[in-house]
Design a protein around this nucleic acid. Structure first.
Length: 938
RNA sequence: GCAGAAGUGGUGGAAUUGGUAGACACGUUGGACUUAAAAUCCAAUGAACAUUAGUUCGUGCGGGUUCAAGUCCCGCCUUCUGUACCA
């Protein structure tokens, strides 16, 4: 019987689907284990071999955990709202729901043929109204919450309103906008409802505010900071400009400290945690208030070095700073205005590219040093960013290199306030070795002492206090797009109102085009039926809007990360229409035990999802603080591109080994035309494109034509994309799974080379032949040999360790070694071969199911207990000792395991080969490590 | 600039606590089977020297610790990833 993988794989995939083999139960006596892959976006191109890498790894782990007796939740679904489907809709007029549906079908077919153990009964799609109903619901909860700094958690906004009615906001310590005024209870109670709502927006966790946003004209939408790479849009590489717009924002900054602290409690990679730490950007220091001479204005700055306050010799404001126009003296007016105009014109990108040029202008105004009362000149300069801190810095040139460079450039004094440090060449920024001098009451103190003292003194003077600053900004939550979740929001007198939760979902309206309107409104502005009737609680025709009972609905939609910020909870109870998931399900599954995905989501999805989890916990909807306990980033699989070389100016191609010093042009050839020995199928290449049809090919003497190889990112344009469908047809899903793992460590970037798959495919054939010959199953009930038991048990040990360490590549080698050994031992024993199948089944589930059933078992192998490791089979009576001379291994010597150190030394020294090596010398020293090694020195 | 990861044969990679460097594969070469091919099987395969026995070198580079270093320490170089005038 031959190993007919196509039939076997189809058979078992059908079996799993029919029997719902991998359906997870929400009630079980078994311990739970939740394995999750990062949500795929179903793109039109389908999967290439790089995509399933993480899915295969998580699938192996999920299957392993089932063998280990866990109730495993291993779901899959689609992040199905998003820009590509919408761009496609704009180009073709097709509804994004239609193309999304088609793409999902392709994905599903491709995923199914790889044999994943997903519980498809729990599939979720973010674009499905049953799902986004709850995304809208969470949005409403955020709107109805504020962040209380005293309790350090989110609380219901009604609590805040009660307090405002009772005592105004004097005693309230909550996260709010910078410009929130102080008010009394009388003020509050005297205000109109609109005014009250305006104030409440300053506290709500999601709020509408005029913000400066990253506007991408080409995409017609706003982008979040993490959607911009090097000043251009991440998708498409379009220009991004700053623009003021009224937008929904998420008050994620309220959670900055908890998001930072939480990192200590989760097992994520260091690089990922580090990215999040940098993104949150905590800095501890002080806020210092400077008076402006001859003005009532004050300038507040944030500094991490209050200890260097006596080294201040100027201040710098961002050119956009609101005080600039107020304090600039008439003499400096023209110069300042010219500078502001010049910097405003420079795009973010230019400003970033050109960090070296120092520019700035003196405003003519002076601040007053809080301690010395000396005048401090106020400059403006674009090295100060309006968006960080207060948009102003106190410049200490002796202690900060940027201030130093600025001072040098403009000939500003650089007073030295450090003991025994030379600052004639550069600033001194070493906090550890700082001793302050020339600084009145701070003299002689180190960094820590001086910082503490300076803050105390500033507080006494009322000129500052200790402060912690975060780089993390509130996240803009609106997109001027069609294909996203609609907001459950309508407007009364310009004030946003939430639709009651019981009327959700508010489904996407139909539009005739997916472009912004002529007036520049988002695509939903084209919908005819997009108004809210508050009496009937229905979405009605816009013509009915009377602003009495029928109001306009929000035209923006939610961003891509809305749906993916909580989907991991939905899988726990995917069809619940009473709640986003039942309390029982949430209590049982808690959070994700293992999350596998790419590292590109470090500061986007993975931060927002943590934020929403903490919010849901605060409001009592979930029990957990973090949604994923452990996270692994899989590396990318790169393509191995193939190049053919065309002689410059001629339609003549030359085999790689004959190129020599001719001037040639490398041209990408499709990798499917190239075999394992880098030989090109010339005919296939000719037929590929008309211009190659009549080309000449200079081949090697043996008639072969060699291509060059280079490792690049896998991409259509490089013709190096390998489709898993072809691999499955030609070698089978089990070969694909094994090979993806065999390529190397999961986290590492590594090139794909289809040629190597014959290795694992050969292994599967050998495995098959161990069980089956021409007459069918050849497994017997014979007593296993000692050697076979040893092979089995060392394999159990190694594989178990490997899986626990996510070292899947080494377990594939271990299987190969085991099968090679058992084949050599001519093992046919059921007692060996049955457990071996269970070991391999997480990696190669189809072939093992088939052999398991052929061995006479009913039902799936997937829940059979993992074999128990028994040390006793590995105990050796002797050891083949490596004998080294001065650290160099010369020969080996078989000696009993229980031999004493002294006897080993004696035996080794008496051995002929030892004397041969020593050539009459007397060893100075003999090191014997029993069970390991012998080293002879001398 | 800063942070993180990584550098081992022709290639992917292995070596879990310092103890036989290169497991397991790919590729290459030779052989068996075959009319031939495919498939399968066997053997060799880090480099140099040597008829053999064997010797020398060898884990990015330079030092060091140790009986023993891919592994530990110090100083560099290169590549990848992320991030950046963050006060």
């Amino acid at each position: 019987m031959k190993y007919n993988f196509n039939d076997i794989e189809a058979k078992w995939q059908a079996y799993w689907a029919e029997n719902q083999t991998f359906k997870a139960e929400n009630h079980s006596d078994k311990p739970k284990y939740y394995v999750l892959d990062m949500f795929p976006y179903p793109s039109g191109a389908g999967l290439h071999v790089g995509h399933p890498l993480g899915y295969i790894a998580s699938d192996i782990y999920a299957r392993y955990k089932r063998h280990k007796g866990f109730n495993v939740l291993h779901p899959q679904g689609y992040d199905s709202f998003g820009l590509p489907a919408e761009q496609y809709a704009i180009q073709t007029g097709q509804h994004p729901a239609v193309t999304t549906e088609e793409n999902i079908a392709t994905y599903r077919r491709q995923l199914d043929q790889i044999g994943f153990s997903f519980d498809w009964s729990r599939e979720v799609r973010t674009s499905n109204p049953d799902y986004y109903k709850w995304t809208q619901w969470i949005f409403i909860q955020l709107f109805n919450s504020y962040y209380c700094n005293i309790d350090n958690k989110a609380e219901d906004i009604s609590e805040l309103i009660k307090e405002f009615e009772r005592a105004g906001n004097a005693k309230v310590d909550a996260v709010c906008d910078e410009d929130t005024p102080s008010f009394s209870a009388e003020d509050w109670n005297s205000w109109s409802s609109e005014k009250q709502q305006e104030i409440l927006l300053k506290y709500r966790l999601t709020y509408l505010a005029e913000t400066e946003v990253n506007w991408c004209p080409a995409l017609g939408t706003v982008l979040a900071n993490d959607e911009i790479v090097n000043g251009v849009s991440e998708r498409g590489g379009h220009t991004v400009v700053r623009k003021k717009m009224t937008q929904w924002s998420m008050r994620i900054s309220a959670y900055a400290e908890r998001l930072l602290q939480g990192l200590e409690t989760i097992d994520w990679t260091d690089s990922l945690k580090e990215s999040q730490r940098n993104w949150i950007g905590k800095s501890v220091g002080a806020s210092v208030v400077f008076n402006v001479k001859n003005h009532d204005e004050t300038i507040e700055v944030f500094t991490t070095r209050p200890d260097t306050i006596f080294g201040v010799s100027f201040m710098t404001l961002a050119p956009e700073h609101e005080l600039v126009s107020k304090i600039t003296t008439p003499e400096q007016q023209a110069e300042v205005e010219a500078y502001i105009e010049k910097t405003a014109k420079r795009s973010e990108r230019e400003r970033m590219a050109d960090v070296k040029t120092i520019s700035g202008v003196f405003t003519g105004a002076y601040a007053e040093h809080p301690f010395t009362k000396e005048p401090v000149p106020i400059w403006i300069g674009d090295y100060v960013l309006a968006s960080y801190g207060t948009g102003a810095v106190m410049a200490v040139p002796c202690g900060d290199q940027r201030d130093y460079d600025f001072a040098k450039h403009f000939n500003i004094a650089i007073p030295n306030i450090f003991e025994g440090v030379d600052i004639s060449e550069e600033a001194f920024a070493d906090k550890e070795n700082t001793v302050i001098g020339n600084s009145d009451f701070l003299n002689g103190l180190n960094y820590k002492q001086a910082t503490k003292k300076a803050i105390e003194e500033l507080e006494k003077l009322g000129h500052g206090q200790g402060k912690t600053n975060y780089r993390l900004r509130d996240a803009v939550f609106s997109r001027q797009r069609y294909w996203g979740e609609p907001f459950p929001v309508y407007y009364v007198n310009g004030m946003p109102q939430m639709i009651e939760a019981k009327h959700l979902p508010i489904t996407l309206p139909e539009v005739e085009k997916y472009l912004p309107t002529e007036e520049g409104e988002p695509p939903l502005g084209r919908a005819d039926v997009w108004a809210w009737n508050t009496e009937t609680a229905e979405v009605v025709n816009n013509e009915l809007i009377d602003n009495k009972t029928i109001f306009p609905l929000e035209l923006n939609t939610m961003p891509g990360w809305a749906g993916s910020s909580w989907y991991f909870f939905r899988y726990m109870d995917a069809h619940n229409d009473e709640a986003f998931a039942s309390k029982e399900a949430l209590d049982y599954w808690q959070n994700v035990d293992l999350y596998i995905g790419g590292s590109e989501h470090a500061t986007g999805h993975l931060l927002y999802a943590r934020f929403w989890t903490k919010f849901l916990k605060d409001r009592g909807y979930v029990q957990v603080d973090e949604f994923a306990k452990k996270l692994i980033n899989q590396g990318m699989i790169l393509g191995t591109s193939a190049f053919v070389y065309r002689i410059e100016g001629e339609n003549k191609f030359v085999s790689k080994d004959l190129v020599q010093d001719q001037t040639v042009q490398p041209i990408h050839a499709d990798v499917s035309f190239v075999n394992a020995s880098d030989e090109l199928d010339v005919d296939a290449f000719r037929n590929w494109r008309p211009e190659f049809k009549d080309a000449q090919f200079i081949t090697a003497e043996d008639g072969t034509f060699k291509v060059g190889r280079e490792v690049e990112k896998m991409s259509k344009s490089k013709y190096n994309v390998v489709n898993p469908d072809n691999i499955c047809t030609e070698y089978g899903a089990d070969s694909l799974r094994l090979y993806e793992m065999f390529l190397g460590p999961l986290e590492q970037y590594k090139p794909w080379n289809t040629a190597g798959i014959t290795g694992v495919h050969g292994f599967l054939k050998k495995l098959w032949k161990l069980y089956v010959d021409d007459n069918g199953i050849k497994v017997t009930d014979a007593e296993p040999s000692k050697d076979s038991l040893k092979t089995l048990h060392k394999t159990i040990k190694k594989v178990e360790e490997d899986i626990e360490n996510f070292s899947f590549n080494t377990s594939v080698s271990t299987f190969m070694i085991a099968v090679n050994e058992l084949t050599a031992q001519k093992c046919t024993s059921r007692a060996i071969l049955e457990p071996l199948l269970v070991l391999i089944s997480p990696y190669a589930p189809h072939i093992t199911e088939e052999l398991w059933s052929q061995l006479g078992h009913e039902g799936s192998i997937s829940t059979v207990a993992f074999p128990q490791f028994d040390e006793s089979h590995l105990v050796e009576s002797s050891k083949n000792y490596p004998i080294s001379f001065n650290g160099k291994m010369r020969f080996t010597m078989e000696l009993p395991m229980d031999m004493s150190k002294e006897d080993i030394e004696k035996a080794v020294l008496e051995y002929d080969k030892t004397q041969e090596q020593l050539q009459g010398r007397t060893p100075k020293k003999v090191i014997v490590v029993p069970g390991k090694i012998v080293n002879i020195v001398g």
